[in-house]
Design a protein around this nucleic acid. Structure first.
Lengths: 194, 194
DNA sequence: AAAAAAAGAATGAACGTTCATTTTTACATA
DNA sequence: TATGTAAAAATGAACGTTCATTCTTTTTTT
């Protein structure tokens, strides 16, 4: 039970500092010493909570990914119609990416670089199951195009990542109108026409 | 004229090695010494062609981006209809991402991390102008939805990046059928209905 | 007062870059 | 064509710094 006694606050501070620093500098350009400093902790203390730097970033990734999907599906349930369900999930994801912008950026970076272990990556993918189930149902009902899960994901959900990154760079800003339009694009791209 | 005498082959080898190593290990985990070794050159030689490591990766980014867009627009001309033009460009981009998979991966990593200077990023964006012009024309003709350029890009073109990355991970493989379906999704998401 | 947690300082390896030197190239002269 | 030479290009080794991790000691908790 030793581990339970350790302050969970310190662990959280470390994870938070990791996200912020990796967002701004990238994984290998954020020294453990800086993470420690931002979390107001000694570098040596990090090693009480994590095996090493790789473990720290892996765990952070899995944690943020879990947070992301749990937020996405929180208000969804399987009795909804496919269209309703998709709209709800899509909007929750958009919400998350706007409100938890730092977390979303971190996930995008992890997903596009070799900084995460293959094992942790697989772990992160599992959480998407409810969405895959919804699509399966949609295809059976003839509402969603009979495409592979990844194609659906690429056209319906993933563009949001790109928009958030562009937004972060200050090239343009997303507002409510954009989001409604983006949702319409997403839905057009995966629904069966007519 | 001194610079012109330097072997262009060495420079190319350095750029190529950078792409491969950064793809596999990330920017900060690829030492100059390894880049030099892969390019069959002394570490010191790199500094005859590039100011420093940052300059090397910036120049590599701009070069690959230019290559990408030049390939994308090579066979396009403004006398084509909007729908034809879009289909052509979309397919050229898909081609590039399949054939020049390493290069495409490298761009995705650059675009999702802080590893590239802001200035070089801006430089890279400029090359997309022909696509923006096509969309402008499409909007005027009432064929393309009246959305912002980045929204159009996010739903029409960017999903391809995601698909290539998933493909690279071995989670699924893209074939000709997928590409045709993906194109249909892309077009559905940006064309005016009816 | 024993055990757990935390700290700062220390360690050794790895890195980007530079330095001193050697090798190659370009070209003028014979 | 052959030879000499100065500049350019290329090199391997070395330098100083930074970093992840560990070690020893101190502080906190039970």
């Amino acid at each position: 039970m030793a581990k339970l006694q350790k302050s969970i606050d310190k662990r959280n501070a470390l994870v938070k500092a990791t996200i912020e620093l990796v967002n701004n500098n990238g994984f290998h350009a954020t020294p453990m010493s800086k993470i420690a400093k931002m979390a107001k902790v000694s570098p040596a203390t990090i090693y009480l909570y994590f095996e090493n730097k790789q473990d720290l970033v892996n765990q952070t990734y899995i944690e943020v990914k879990a947070q992301y999907t749990s937020y996405a599906f929180e208000t969804y349930n399987e009795t909804m119609s496919v269209e309703e369900g998709f709209k709800l999930i899509w909007n929750r994801i958009a919400d998350f990416k706007l409100k938890e912008c730092e977390n979303a950026m971190f996930l995008a970076q992890c997903d596009n670089t070799p900084m995460i272990d293959e094992e942790s990556r697989q772990e992160g993918i599992k959480h998407l199951q409810p969405l895959l189930d919804l699509w399966e149902r949609g295809r059976k009902e003839g509402i969603i195009k009979p495409l592979s899960d990844y194609l659906l994901y690429a056209y319906a959900i993933n563009p949001l990542s790109f928009l958030m990154i562009i937004q972060k760079r200050g090239v343009f800003t997303l507002d409510k109108t954009h989001l409604e339009e983006a949702y319409q694009s997403a839905w057009s791209s995966i629904k069966v026409c007519q």
